[in-house]
């Protein structure tokens, strides 16, 4: 009854709360871990030491190159119709403003369509997007492409409503992308509250003027590492089940939820299995990715280096959407593999978490999934997750040790059983 032993140890036994306490120690010590920052490299070195001290196998760092962008000093002040200092967060990879900033009238739009319809009005203006939140996957396009679309019609800068399910006046940062041949303009996220207020002001015909200052700057790529630790397989060591989370974060809060939780339940999964003296037939490999927030940069280089062994990967797992109380496992794979995973999840009956949903995914494992490797991720409270996501509220206070215990138990049972079954998961 390996599954029960893992669950008891993780949720009721001496290992309960360990993932939370380990995470708190790291994020309290280091803080947030932006790609290219010293904080991130310090965190990697700390984790390298932690994993060696934990006695895991083949602990090593795989070198990669990652983007190095810094936020600098930034501010946005509404000058008309009244003075109002706005909370903003520059978006990742944005350029800065001139030292004196950009002072311009605002055009408020609620969609790309409206921007196109009112294109003549956008020239020489700061475009404010007040797009409604539908789902993160759907709404994030405004954050990612908002600057490019506005630049195409002559805007000077963009201020984009935070992509968030709930807001207490806290901006949500994130990556954005420029496009070759389109002028680069500064872009930042604003709070849901300010976006809605400006929308109301505009609908009453009020003229809105904002002064935007951003010291953002991009530097040459920096050196970093993906952090790897294993429990080497006893029978088929060349075959792999990959368990992962990412160690980098945005420069907000402590980077506890995104993705300290995912990284530390992945470590916890290996620790639990080791504590029980278990060794699966296949190798259990944990990877803590670097520079996920800039688009899976570390993970892509890992995939390029290791894809030659793709036929030996039975399952790739990433936890990167919260470690609140899981409601089930998200899975992508063949029908045959899915019914096997449904059997595996029955082992979590003691925790009453047995569902297998579709849509197993993760920025860092999607390369493998798109190439045909079965993939899994955790399904939990996404409304709560996106309330804290990429904000200064992403701290240990948003985390729950008991829920992390359950998430770690689920992660460990799934990883161990799939790694120990006689056959790999079948593919299409």
């Amino acid at each position: 009854d390996v599954a029960k032993a893992i669950i008891n140890l993780a949720v009721y036994g001496k290992s309960q709360n360990r993932s939370y306490e380990r995470l708190a120690l790291l994020v309290d010590t280091v803080g947030p871990r932006l790609s290219g920052s010293k904080n991130l490299e310090k965190a990697i070195q700390i984790m390298y030491q932690n994993l060696q001290e934990n006695g895991l196998d083949n602990v090593h760092l795989e070198p990669v190159k990652i983007p190095h962008w810094e936020r600098g000093e930034e501010s946005a002040v509404m000058l008309q119709p009244r003075i109002h200092k706005m909370a903003i967060l520059g978006l990742g990879s944005s350029i800065g403003t001139p030292p004196e900033g950009i002072t311009a009238e605002v055009l408020v739009v609620t969609s790309f369509n409206e921007l196109q319809q009112r294109a003549p009005e956008a020239k020489g203006k700061i475009v404010v997007y007040n797009q409604p939140y539908v789902t993160y996957a759907e709404t994030v396009q405004y954050r990612v492409q908002g600057a490019v679309e506005a630049a195409k019609v002559g805007a000077l800068a963009t201020l984009i409503r935070s992509v968030a399910s709930f807001s207490i006046y806290s901006p949500h940062t994130g990556i954005q992308e420029y496009q070759d041949g389109v002028p680069k303009i500064p872009t930042a996220c604003i709070t849901v509250e300010d976006a809605e207020m400006m929308s109301r002001m505009a609908s009453h015909g009020l003229k809105i003027v904002i002064q935007l200052k951003m010291g953002a700057k991009t530097y040459p790529d920096a050196d970093s590492f993906n952090t790897v630790a294993e429990i080497t397989g006893s029978k088929y060591p060349e075959q792999v089940v990959l368990v992962s989370g990412h160690l980098d974060s945005w420069d907000v809060g402590q980077g506890a939820l995104d993705d300290g939780g995912g990284a530390f339940i992945s470590w916890e999964a290996l620790s639990l299995i080791k504590d029980l003296g278990l060794r699966p037939k296949r190798t259990l490999r944990m990877v803590l990715w670097t520079a996920e927030e800039q688009g899976g940069i570390g993970a892509y280089q890992y995939y390029q280096l290791h894809k030659v062994n793709i036929s030996n990967y039975s399952l790739v797992m990433e936890s990167d959407s919260g470690t609140f109380l899981p409601t089930g496992l998200q899975f992508t794979g063949s029908t045959k593999a899915r019914v096997i995973m449904e059997e595996v999840m029955k082992l979590l009956q003691p925790l009453n978490i047995t569902q297998v949903f579709s849509g197993g995914e993760g920025t860092d494992i999607n390369f493998w999934i798109q190439a045909g490797v079965p993939g899994a991720s955790i399904c939990d409270d996404l409304y709560k997750y996106f309330s804290f996501h990429h904000t200064n509220g992403d701290t240990m206070t948003a985390m729950n040790p008991k829920e992390m215990n359950v998430a770690a138990a689920l992660w460990a049972v799934v990883a161990f059983v799939v790694a120990d079954m006689e056959e790999m998961l079948p593919r299409e």
Binding site: V2, Q239, E343, V417, E422, E423, R427
Partner: peptide, 24 residues
């Protein structure tokens, strides 16, 4: 070596089901 490289399982689903149940 019961590995699954060419897409053909060596085992029936019932066997796999029993194998998984043994972990519970």
């Amino acid at each position: 070596k019961a590995i699954y490289k060419n897409g053909i399982s060596q085992r029936t689903f019932e066997e796999i089901k029993e194998e998984i149940a043994s972990y519970g």
